[in-house]
């Protein structure tokens, strides 16, 4: 790796991990990875591309060459809101949304994300809440996310919170399903099977 004076990074083949790329290609939705034309239609369709450090087209390029450090440690995968615009426009039918999901999963599994970045923290808190109760409760979810990332952000939410409360849209109830044990057993079985 070589960092240039103006912040760009150069990489060479020996830093790549083609076996990792091949593993990604085997995931559901990512089969067409190596057929990418680099046409950039995905980046053109993506409403979030202008906020990303790597556009979706560049992510595909990085992944298929096996540059996993860049693909897993970037902001792009967290900005992807799963809107599927890239996936329906891709002339090669690469399910880029699924590719982004697979990168998110690996980044979370390997702890390769900024610890206070709200998006992966929200995903984890959501996951735990549903595992514990079978349903999510928006208010408690946002509270937990804020406490784990930046509690000061709660101040900026007071006004919106009050407006939601006033219009009967802020539920403080902690929802749960009746057959929770059954769901937990199933989730455990699914994890074992995976």
């Amino acid at each position: 790796m070589m960092t240039m004076g103006f912040g760009r990074t150069l990489r060479y083949q020996r830093e790549a991990d083609p076996a990792w790329a091949d593993g990604v290609r085997r995931l559901p939705g990512c089969e067409a990875l190596f057929r990418c034309l680099q046409c950039g239609t995905c980046s053109g369709a993506c409403p979030l591309a202008i906020y990303m450090d790597f556009t979706p087209r560049r992510i595909v390029a990085l992944v298929r060459e096996g540059f996993h450090d860049d693909a897993l440690a970037c902001q792009t995968i967290w900005l992807c809101a799963s809107c599927y615009a890239c996936a329906v426009h891709c002339p090669q039918q690469i399910q880029i949304t699924d590719l982004m999901y697979s990168l998110k999963r690996e980044a979370i599994r390997r702890g390769l994300y900024p610890k206070r970045l709200p998006i992966p923290v929200l995903a984890q808190e959501f996951f735990r809440m549903v595992e514990r109760r079978g349903r999510s409760s928006e208010f408690w979810l946002v509270l937990r996310m804020a406490l784990r990332t930046n509690p000061l952000v709660l101040f900026s939410m007071i006004r919106t919170g009050w407006q939601l409360l006033r219009t009967g849209r802020l539920s403080l109830r902690r929802e749960r399903i009746d057959r929770l044990e059954q769901l937990r057993r199933e989730l455990a079985a699914a994890r074992e099977a995976g």
Binding site: A81, R105, F126, F127, G134, R135, I177, L187, A190
Partner: peptide, 17 residues
């Protein structure tokens, strides 16, 4: 007794779940 759909968060953590 419906349960949460998992939205986009579950897919980002565990596809099988």
């Amino acid at each position: 007794d419906w349960n949460c759909c998992g939205a986009t968060s579950y897919m980002a953590i565990d596809e099988g779940a």
